[in-house]
Design a protein around this nucleic acid. Structure first.
Lengths: 329, 329
DNA sequence: TCAAAAATGTCTCACGTTGTCATTATGGCG
DNA sequence: CGCCATAATGACAACGTGAGACATTTTTGA
C-alpha cells in the first residue's frame, strides 16, 4: 500500500508537500498540486486512517450504539438514515449493537474509546425514556430521551402524529373510531392517546372511552388482545366505523378479524395504523393507510447533530411523521 | 487518555512489561501481571487502535458491504449474524451500505483500504450471481456467488429447502399443491422449482405443470400476479389443496384471496411459503408455516470465514433452512 | 552458596501523518 | 544587478504501540 512517502518520491517533492496537498493547505504551486494529485490517483493512494488518527488524536468516527435496534425491522431505518447522512458528510459511522446488558454497554464504550470517536448516537428500539451514565464524548439520543440528564434527543412526534391521523380520519367522515393502543409502558402510547382524544375534542367528539390500552409487549404478545377484544366490539350495534391500531402488525390481526366477521376493510370498517412497515402495509389487501414513523429522517438529523461543529442545545426534538395513504380508510 | 507509558509509571514497571502484559506474552510474574491489569482497569486504559494499527499494518476490521441489504427487512439478519459473530470473536465490523452504483463501490473500497481492513463480506439483497472486480483483500460472498471468479460464498440451500418443504407437504397428506414461484430472474426460483418437482417425483407425483413462474420483481410487483392467478385456480374443481408461495409477502396476498373465496387457511386449503419474515409470518391468522431462510446463520458463518487464519477454499457453501412450523398447513 | 533460569529493564526502530520551524526559490523594484 | 519580501518547499520531531536484541536483576533449586 502506497504512502505519502511513495507519492513524494515519485513526484520528486518532499513528504510535507504531499501532506499539504492532501489537506488542501494554502501555499502550494498549482502545478505541483496537480502533479501530486495525479500521482495519488494513478498510484491508488489511500491515506492511513491509523496514522491520521495518531496525529490528530480525534477521529471523525461517529459511533451508533443500537440497543437491539438491529433486531427490529422498522427501526432499521434509523440506521439507514444515519449511515446515509454520515456518507454524505464524509464521516464514518461505526455500528455497535448491544443487547442492553451492562457488559455490552461497557464493550461498546471501550470500542468507541479505542477509536477515539468524537461523538456517538444512542438509539433504542422503541420510543422510551432511558437513564444513561455520563459519557466522555458528545452523545445524541435517538428514539429515546434522558429525563434526568438533559441531552439532545430526536424522537418521533407521536402526539402530533396521532392528532394528524385523527384529523384525517374525521375529515373522511368517520365518527366512531376505536383505538387499539399499545400497552402503557410505551411512551408513544400515552402521547398517541392524548393526541387522539385532543384532536377528537377539537372536532367536537369525546372519545376518551374509545381507547383500549393494549397488552402489547415489545416482543409482541398482542394476538390475544386483538382477537379477544375485537369480536365483541364488532358485534355491538354501535360498532366502530374505524379501528385505529398501535402498529401495523396489530392491523394485520384486525384485518383477519374483520374478514372473519364478514366485513370489508375500507368499505364497512376503516383501518388505520402507526408505523408503515412496508412489507406489511403494502401487501395487505387493501393496502394499509398508516402513519409512517419518521425513522429515516430521525437517523439523518441525529447524524447531522453528531457531526456538527459544536454541541447543540440539550433539547428534545420531535420529528413529524407523514401519513402513508393507501386504501384502508 | 492514558497510554501504556502512564500505566508503566503508575505501576513502577517498565514500558516493555506493560507491553508484555498487553499482548499476553510469556515470562511475566503473575503478581506483576495482575498489578498491571488492575491499573489498566482502574485508570480506564484503552489501547489506541490507531497506534496498534499503525504498528501491525493490518486491522482486525471486517468490512460488511451491504448492497441494498439494509433496505430489505429480512436480510437484516445477515447483518445481525455477522455482527454478533464479530462481537464474539472480538473483531470489529464496519457496515458499508451501497446502492449498487459504481461510485458507491469505489467509496466503500476506499474506506476499507483506509482502514486497512483485512477482509470484507459482500452481501446482496437476494440470492444472485454477481460479477466483481478483484479485491486486494480476502472477500467472502454472502447470499451471492461469482460464477467467473471462484470465491468462498455462503448462500441458502434453496434446492434442498424446497425438497424438505415439499416432503413435509406430502407427508401431511396434501396431493395437489400449487407453487406460485418467484420470477425466473431470481436464482432461488429455479432451484426451488427443481426441488419441488424432484421431491414430488420421489414421492411418485408429477407436478411440473403445477408451478407458476411469478412476475415478482425485487421491489415486489406481484400483487397483480396473485390476485389474477389465484381465483381461477380456486374455482377449478380440481382446486389445489395447498398453495406454496415464493415469499411471505405473497402468502399475505394468498390469505386475502382465500378469505375472499370463503376458504379457511389450514383447513380448506394449506398455505406454505419461504422466508419467515417474523412480523408477517407470526401475525397472519393462522400463523404461516414457512421455510425460514438461514440468513442469521449465513451471516455468522461468513464472519467466521472472514476472521479465519487462512483463506478458505473457494467453494459455494449452501446453508440449510428449517421449517418454521405454525398452523397454515 | 552458586549457577541456572526466570523476570524485568533499557534501548532502538518502525509505522504514516501532520505541526513547527527552517531553508530555498521566485518575483518585484530601485 | 542586487536586495528584500514573499511564496514555495523541505527537514525533523512527535504521536502510541509492538517488537527485537540484549543487559541486568531477582528468584529458584540443587
Amino acid at each position: 500500500m502506497n504512502t505519502q512517502k511513495d507519492i513524494a518520491r515519485a513526484a520528486g517533492v518532499s513528504l510535507k508537500t504531499v501532506s499539504r496537498v492532501m489537506n488542501g493547505e494554502e501555499g502550494v504551486k498549482p502545478a505541483t498540486r496537480e502533479k501530486v494529485r495525479r500521482l495519488m490517483r494513478e498510484m491508488g493512494y489511500q491515506p492511513s486512517v491509523a496514522a491520521q488518527l495518531m496525529r490528530t488524536k480525534q477521529s471523525d468516527i461517529v459511533g451508533f450504539i443500537a440497543d437491539r435496534v438491529a433486531t427490529s425491522f422498522s427501526s432499521i431505518d434509523l440506521i439507514r438514515g444515519a449511515q446515509d447522512m454520515a456518507w454524505e458528510l464524509g464521516r464514518r459511522m461505526m455500528l455497535l449493537s448491544t443487547q442492553g446488558t451492562a457488559r455490552d454497554e461497557y464493550l461498546a464504550e471501550a470500542e468507541l474509546a479505542q477509536f477515539r470517536a468524537g461523538a456517538a448516537i444512542y438509539a433504542t428500539i422503541s420510543h422510551q425514556a432511558v437513564r444513561l451514565d455520563p459519557a466522555p464524548r458528545r452523545r445524541i439520543l435517538l428514539n429515546c430521551f434522558d429525563p434526568e440528564t438533559p441531552s439532545l434527543a430526536f424522537v418521533p412526534d407521536d402526539y402530533q402524529m396521532a392528532r394528524d391521523l385523527t384529523r384525517t380520519i374525521f375529515e373522511r367522515g368517520y365518527r366512531r373510531p376505536f383505538f387499539l393502543n399499545l400497552s402503557e409502558d410505551h411512551v408513544a402510547a400515552k402521547l398517541r392517546r392524548d393526541g387522539f382524544i385532543d384532536e377528537a375534542r377539537a372536532c367536537g367528539l369525546e372519545v376518551a372511552d374509545r381507547v383500549l390500552e393494549g397488552t402489547v409487549a415489545v416482543d409482541g404478545g398482542h394476538r390475544q388482545c386483538v382477537d379477544d377484544v375485537l369480536p365483541p366490539l364488532l358485534s355491538d350495534k354501535e360498532r366502530p366505523d374505524l379501528v385505529l391500531c398501535g402498529q401495523d402488525q396489530m392491523a394485520m390481526q384486525v384485518y383477519a378479524q374483520l374478514w372473519r366477521a364478514g366485513l370489508e376493510v375500507g368499505r364497512d370498517v376503516g383501518v388505520a395504523s402507526f408505523d408503515n412497515q412496508e412489507p406489511i402495509a403494502a401487501n395487505l389487501t387493501p393496502g394499509l393507510s398508516t402513519m409512517a414513523l419518521p425513522y429515516y429522517e430521525m437517523g439523518r438529523q441525529a447524524m447531522v447533530a453528531a457531526c456538527a461543529a459544536s454541541d447543540g442545545a440539550p433539547e428534545i426534538v420531535r420529528i413529524p411523521g407523514t401519513l402513508q395513504d393507501r386504501a384502508s380508510f
